[in-house]
Design a binder for these strands. Structure first.
Length: 476
RNA sequence: GCCGGGAUAGCCUAGAGGCGAGGCGAGGGACUGCAGAUCCCUUUCACCCGGGUUCAAAUCCCGGUCCCGGCUCCA
């Protein structure tokens, strides 16, 4: 079955067909680095991380590009407030962003083009627009003449008349028309600046994405993504610049993530109602945050609440328990010389859930729906384990492999599957378990419980079952 | 004003014409020296309101109510 993607451009789900066979080229708008990333950023980047992982899982080679806006009005403003050098400030928060994303297990992009590393390319792009008659130089900068681009508004469905009427567009001294936007801003005294044919200055915000995406992905590519708030004006302007310059369709699929909401309001720096990624990571495992995000469809607004995160934590705990149950059961599993009803039932449940998982992900990356399938396997395998004395190795393996695939796509259970059990740690634990078993036989429960308590503090949980005592690692 | 998204059991979320949606929480039971994990049962025939179409509507249509977002820097 084919993957279907909701395209903001057409406002409907479309079958995904990459421009080049087997390859997906995608660009996701990165942050302006002037502050700590908050959960809203995390939401968007985790969403695109899972989209990227899924495409890779389905066999595509994905070329992923994410930009850094490392020079911009906001950065200059913040630097002036704190007395820092704008370059150093940007550098600092760029590093912090990368660290936070790594902590959240977001796979790094293949290229992270920075504006300050691409001045020449940007200037050339503006020149081309000027040559083609879409751009003009004003007293304070170079502007894109919006009314010359006939398709303006096709992404956001905004009509030019309404835009002008809305009067929210700023007239600006150097502009011919209020709706025009800056491609190049001439530097005011004391501002960071680069040389250009129009004097010293810096690029406008939108031109960088047009320039850098086409540099790495070509004059047309598959997916361009970002937060919902970028549809207008940022992405609308990118389309205008790029299609004016190249003379043909630029991006095939536009994808946008819903906002992260806090008490009914969009979480944002300007509103000041944000929770930073670092803050959250101090209290929760990164996978809890990922699961929290994945429990909601990527296009829907996601409400942040402490309870919501706790829900995610409980859910993740359940999945880890299931993994541990399987692992422990593996030790007493046997080769199947025959199947009985429990085997047939477990097998069918896993088979059906796997199909559901892929169907849900194919349908515009419906992670919330896909998660249902994950819980179905969890339930089926736990039930199987209570039904049989000697579990069949093949059944456990089926479940195990399903979880491994889910983990690969969702960025969960990562450590679990790659974990090398260190040295003779296991033997030591087994020894303690044996000693405790003897103590229990002698009904010396105080000592037995002490061993259990102390191991628990070390992240090892002992569980007494009818088949004897097993030990599990506790993750969250 | 112009675009857009919503309202689903105690809670969080899927679904989008017809076979009891998933999880969490709560209560009960099984297993247990206790704990933990797991399983079973209950909460569970839920879809904002009012009309309409249909053999059949959470789902489609019309009309309301309420909530939220974008149109200005934003992921």
């Amino acid at each position: 079955m084919a993957i279907r993607i909701y395209n903001t451009l057409t406002r409907q789900k479309e079958e995904f067909k990459p421009l080049r066979e087997g390859e997906v080229r995608m660009y996701v708008c990165g942050p302006t680095v002037y502050d700590y990333p908050h959960l809203g950023h995390a939401r968007t980047y985790i969403a695109f991380d899972v989209i990227r992982r899924y495409l890779e899982h389905r066999g595509y080679t994905v070329l992923m590009v994410m930009n850094f806006t490392d020079i911009d009005d906001k950065i200059i403003k913040r630097a002036n407030e704190t007395g820092e050098d704008p370059k150093e400030l940007a550098e600092k928060f760029l590093r912090i962003f990368l660290e936070d994303m790594k902590a959240l297990k977001v796979k790094p992009a293949d290229v992270y083009p920075r504006v300050t590393e691409h001045m020449e390319d940007i200037i050339n792009f503006v020149k081309k627009l000027q040559e083609k008659g879409y751009a003009y130089e004003g007293s304070d900068g170079v502007y894109f003449e919006v009314r010359k681009f006939k398709d303006y508004g096709k992404l956001s469905k905004i009509k030019l008349e309404d835009l002008v009427k809305g009067a929210r567009v700023e007239p600006g001294e150097g502009k011919r028309n209020p709706e025009d936007f800056a491609l190049w801003k001439k530097a005011k005294p004391g501002e960071p600046k680069w040389k250009s044919p129009w004097g010293e200055g810096r690029p406008g915000w939108h031109i960088e994405c047009s320039t850098m995406s086409s540099k790495y992905l070509g004059e047309s590519f598959d997916i361009h993504g970002g937060g919902n708030d970028l549809i207008f004006p940022h992405h609308e302007n990118e389309i205008a610049q790029s299609e004016a310059c190249f003379g043909h369709e630029w991006v095939h699929y536009w994808m946008h993530t819903g906002f992260l909401m806090l008490n009914g309001e969009k979480m944002s720096k300007s509103l000041g109602n944000f929770v930073t990624v670092r803050e959250l990571l101090k209290r929760y495992d990164p996978e809890v945050i990922r699961l929290f995000v994945l429990q909601r469809h990527y296009r829907s607004p996601l409400d942040y609440s402490e309870e919501g995160i706790e829900h995610a934590k409980n859910n993740l705990e359940r999945l880890y328990n299931t993994l541990e149950n399987i692992r422990v059961a593996m030790e007493r599993a046997e080769i199947a010389f025959r199947w009985d009803e429990p085997e047939f039932r477990a097998y069918e449940a896993i088979r059906d859930a796997r199909r559901k998982f892929y169907e849900a992900m194919d349908d515009d990356f419906n992670t919330a729906e896909a998660l249902k399938a994950v819980f179905e396997v969890s339930n089926a395998i736990n039930r199987y384990l209570t039904e049989v004395e000697k579990p069949k190795e093949s059944i456990l393996r089926k479940a195990w492999e399903f979880f491994r695939d889910v983990g690969e796509v969702f960025g969960l259970f990562e450590d679990y599957f790659k974990e090398q059990r260190a040295g003779n740690e296991e033997e030591l634990i087994n020894l303690l378990v044996e000693v405790r078993a003897q103590l229990r036989k002698e009904r010396r429960f105080d000592l037995a419980d002490r061993i259990r308590e102390e191991l628990r503090k070390l992240g090892i949980q002992l569980e007494d079952t009818p088949q004897g005592t097993v030990w599990k690692r506790i993750k969250v």
